[in-house]
């Protein structure tokens, strides 16, 4: 159990690092698009209450 949790944490860390590196490499325009999509995804759950 403990080792699988460790593995999961490691995987998440690696995914985060890969995502960060990919994000850093994006040009400004693409980064802007990704940021907008992420902020939209964050707000969407609230919209169902209106």
């Amino acid at each position: 159990m403990k080792s699988s949790l460790k593995m999961l944490a490691l995987l998440l860390l690696a995914a985060g690092a890969v995502g960060y590196l990919m994000g850093v490499r994006l040009d400004e325009e693409r980064r802007g698009r990704v940021m907008k999509l992420l902020s939209e995804a964050r707000e969407m759950p609230f919209r169902v209450f209106v």
Binding site: E43, M44, R47, V48, V50
Partner: peptide
């Protein structure tokens, strides 16, 4: 992200 259930409802939910 602003259509369907994510757009304001016809009948206000609040």
């Amino acid at each position: 992200g602003n259509m369907g259930p994510f757009r304001p409802n016809y009948r206000s939910r609040c």
